[in-house]
């Protein structure tokens, strides 16, 4: 946790709790609002919410892990979302995702240790005509080839070392 983060989490959560009625039905709206403020759901926030709604923390955690929308890791400064809709997948979405994973050294759903980049896969963003699509900081980038992957990363100051491709193949993608 970065300095001052705990304070930020506490104030954000209490602000959101002030807006919403403290009942179970508000749980998803509360989590969405907290995530909008903090860009992810830290364990502390989930505990605070559970306390306020007088429900076990595991219920909040269960919900946060059940729904795809919630993020348990802090996102990077640059957020990369690779579309895995059918059209994108068929024309190289997986290839683009592999390239990002290789270059950043992280798996999808993770953030680089320096919190510069985070990588996620999203279901269809509805831009199937531009496939394969990558959403870079909310902006849609179409027809992303491996060269373009490098281009995107270089544009954000990432140093690209030509990798050998040997021994870098990752195993189970954690699904």
């Amino acid at each position: 946790m970065v300095e001052g983060e705990e304070e930020l989490i506490r104030t954000s959560v209490s602000e959101v709790l002030g807006e919403q009625e403290a009942v179970r039905e508000s749980l998803i709206p509360i989590l969405l609002r907290v995530q909008e403020k903090l860009s992810y759901l830290p364990p502390l926030a989930m505990e605070l919410i559970a306390g306020a709604l007088q429900i076990p923390a595991v219920d909040v955690f269960g919900l946060a892990t059940f729904y795809n929308q919630f993020r348990l890791h802090p996102p990077g400064k640059y957020q990369l979302q690779v579309c895995m809709g059918t059209a994108c997948y068929m024309v190289g979405g997986k290839i683009a995702l592999d390239c990002f994973e290789r270059r950043l050294g992280i798996n999808e759903g993770e953030t680089t240790p320096d919190r510069e980049f985070s990588l996620e896969r999203v279901a269809c963003v509805g831009c199937c005509t531009l496939a394969p699509v990558v959403v870079v900081n909310e902006e849609v980038e179409g027809r992303v080839t491996p060269t373009r992957v490098d281009g995107i990363l270089i544009a954000f100051g990432k140093k690209i070392q030509p990798s050998t491709g040997v021994g870098e193949k990752k195993g189970d993608d954690g699904s």
Binding site: G92, I95, D98, C99, R102, T145, P146, T147, T164, G165, V166
Partner: peptide
């Protein structure tokens, strides 16, 4: 072949 990651880039370019 040991280095190739089958990214399809060469075929496209």
């Amino acid at each position: 072949q040991d280095k190739c990651t089958k990214c399809d880039n060469c075929l496209k370019t």
